[in-house]
Design a protein around this nucleic acid. Structure first.
Length: 266
DNA sequence: AATAGCATCAACCGCATACAG
DNA sequence: ACTGTATGCGGTTGATGCTAT
């Protein structure tokens, strides 16, 4: 096609910058031709997003940024764009490179050290779900800091897919369950909880004095999960538009609590 | 000084998804 | 419902620089 590949020259950069400043980048495919560049639109887009954008932050990652990447990667896996969205000025490509060149290796070293010293953090346990009767199920955890659960048999949430509510400083999560298999998969969805769960990442100040996690199965249809969560209002404001995306939803819960979990989308 | 091996990072590639017609 | 196009994403590559020998 006669299109150029490989590293960009300063002249090409300048052409792209001045064109976008004048016309924006509505159509990447048409852009190179109009800007006088012998590049494909894809290449132009990548160059702009990863390098030429004015709000790009260059230079080494701070300790705080690296910590954020560790946490987010623990939760989200290799969803680089989702991680980048939480680090202003950083690109998915940059984060991906940093992960593979620095952070992953550092993490492996740390894990090796932990394996030889057993676990330094409190051991974690997934909550287990038990059916107590035909109309309700209860989630319990093995964590000493989490108390027993309650059950309830009434709700009018039967049509909701995913809703969030607030009750006595607890966050409620409602989602439908239709079968025994769903209960098994729910175990995978529920967070791992340990003693440090509610005290990390600046949650100390807001943590309630007693922690209770509750999952109630209503008419075998709809479990309601309750977690202590004091800032539910800001949570709702910030993320009400993302309720369709279960991963974002959970991610934001756990970034606030400082815990980590890998979850399938709802 | 030469060079082999490793590390880094910009850029590419293929696939998935969204959207318009 | 189907098809084509544009865009975004994550994995991979390759050029370059650095370090050890």
């Amino acid at each position: 096609m006669g299109l150029k590949k490989g590293p960009w020259t300063p002249e090409e950069d300048q052409l792209l910058i001045s064109y976008i400043h004048q016309h924006g980048h509505g159509n990447w495919r048409a852009l190179p031709k109009q800007a006088g560049l012998l590049r494909c639109g894809k290449s132009c887009r990548l160059r702009w997003i990863n390098y030429l954008r004015p709000d790009i932050k260059r230079g080494n990652f701070t300790v705080e940024e690296e910590e954020t990447i560790y946490k987010l990667h623990d939760m989200l896996g290799n969803r680089w764009s989702a991680i980048a969205a939480k680090l202003p000025g950083r690109t998915d490509n940059e984060i991906k490179n940093v992960w593979h060149t620095h952070l992953k290796k550092r993490l492996q070293k740390t894990n090796q050290g932990m394996n030889t010293n057993t676990k330094t953090r409190g051991s974690k346990s997934r909550p287990s779900i038990k059916r107590s009767d035909s109309n309700s199920s209860t989630v319990t955890t093995q964590s000493s800091s989490v108390s027993a659960c309650t059950t309830s048999n009434s709700s009018d949430f039967s049509s909701s897919i995913l809703t969030v509510g607030e009750s006595n400083n607890h966050m409620e999560i409602h989602m439908p369950i239709k079968s025994e298999e769903d209960i098994d998969s729910l175990e995978e969805i529920l967070p791992e909880i340990d003693e440090s769960f509610w005290s990390e990442a600046g949650m100390e100040e807001n943590s309630p004095s007693t922690t209770t996690t509750t999952t109630t199965m209503i008419n075998d249809q709809l479990p309601v999960h309750q977690y202590p969560f004091d800032s539910i209002e800001s949570f709702q404001q910030d993320y009400s538009s993302n309720f369709d995306d279960g991963m974002d939803f959970w991610y934001d819960i756990f970034i606030k609590t400082g815990d980590s979990i890998e979850l399938p989308p709802f």
